[in-house]
């Protein structure tokens, strides 16, 4: 695509609820500086945040790789957690395996993956039980 792209990589620390969300927050700040439409930024920030939180909660952490092009953003979330057995089920609104203690933190609505899909122009999820999960999302910048 375009040559002047921004490349970012983040380590997402597992089970740390203080740092959780800092990567998506940083990306949001950069998109703001780039003058991207606020509504588009919001979609991107929400989708990446949900993915980040999922790695924190369900996968013991992972990595987020972000590439910002002139016309779009690509976000890859990679973890080596326990994986998702039934992806179709996990994608359903309201489905969650979050524990009671995690629910008490305000997670476990089962809305994270559906939110990510809804806010992406392209969404791919690959997961293998015992190996981990990789999610690729991309969002287009209008015009």
């Amino acid at each position: 695509m375009s040559s002047n792209s921004v490349h970012l990589e983040f380590d997402v620390v597992g089970n740390n609820f203080v740092s959780a969300g800092s990567a998506s927050n940083e990306v949001k700040g950069i998109l703001k500086q780039l003058g991207i439409d606020p509504l588009v930024i919001r979609k991107i920030a929400v989708a990446m945040y949900e993915g980040e939180i999922n790695m924190v909660i369900h996968a013991g952490g992972g990595r987020a790789i972000v590439d910002i092009f002139e016309d779009k953003i690509e976000i890859v979330l990679i973890d080596t957690g326990e994986g998702i057995e039934d992806v179709e089920l996990a994608m359903k609104e309201g489905y969650s395996t979050a524990s009671e203690s995690i629910r008490n933190l305000g997670f476990g609505a089962g809305m994270g993956l559906p939110n990510m899909k809804r806010f992406s122009d392209k969404f791919e999820l690959e997961s293998e039980v015992g190996k981990g999960t990789t999610i690729k999302m991309s969002m287009l910048f209008p015009e």
Binding site: F17, A20, K28, R42, A45, L105, G106
Partner: peptide
């Protein structure tokens, strides 16, 4: 918990 603030910040 801090996620409340993260969520609020994310949504401006």
């Amino acid at each position: 918990n801090p996620q409340l603030v993260r969520t609020a910040a994310l949504l401006d």
